[in-house]
Each structure stands twice: as structure tokens, then as C-alpha cells.
Amino acid sequence: MGAGIAWKRRSGRASKPVTVMYCMGSGLGFVLGSVSAAQADNKALGQFLASECTTCHQLSGESTGGIPPITGWPKSQFIAVLRSYRAKERDNEVMQTIAGRLSDDEIAALAAFFEDLGKK
């Protein structure tokens, strides 16, 4: 699934990598299940929530300076990364603050929105 590549390239930074393989294990079955259910219905939500991200991240998938591209990621990986910002396990106060108010459903809606975008 190409997991890990997009975020591992940032390894020079203070970020703590998320173990996607771990998340893919037992704990995530339930989460992924609810993701696919929510995802079909939450397009409008995903679109509105994503508008908060695009002050920094570019919808086109282009990336400049210290703002990484976030389109086209597999949902599970996207979800794991946002949760680790939310839990303040991954450094970066900007992302911690943004992710801090996202519920699991909202993260799922965002993951679906940005994954879709990468397919266009």
C-alpha cells in the first residue's frame, strides 16, 4: 500500500514516526470499518474540514518549503498520522493544535477527502 514513504521522508525532523503497521493490526479493524461507513456520507463534512487544511497544504498536491503534500495518502496511514498529532506524540505545534479538535469521524472524513483528491 505504499505506506510510510510519504512521511518517512521527513525523518530528519523532530517528528516521531507513526507505526502504521501497528495500527494496521488488531486495534484498527474496528476503526477501518467505521471509516468506510462514514466516508460515503461525509463528503460535505470532509470538504469543509479540508478547507481548514488548505491555508497551508495545497489541494494540488504541490508542496513548498516546510508544508508537506497530503493528497493521495492511503486512508489508514493518514488517519494514523493525524491521530498521533492529536495525541501530541508527533511533534509540531501547528499540526497538534489543528488535529486537537478533530474527532475520529472527522479524521476519517478528511482521510477520505484527501485520498480521493490524489486519484484525480
Binding site: 488548505t54 491555508t55 497551508c56 495545497q58 489541494l59 504541490e62 508544508i67
Partner: peptide
């Protein structure tokens, strides 16, 4: 942090 600043400027301009 400065790299974020430059990236943000590109981001908000595109937005």
C-alpha cells in the same frame, strides 16, 4: 519554522 512560513505563504496564495 521558517520553512513552514514559506510553505504557508505558497499555500494561502494558492488557496
Amino acid at each position: 519554522t521558517q520553512a513552514e512560513n514559506m510553505g504557508w505563504y505558497a499555500g494561502i496564495s494558492a488557496d
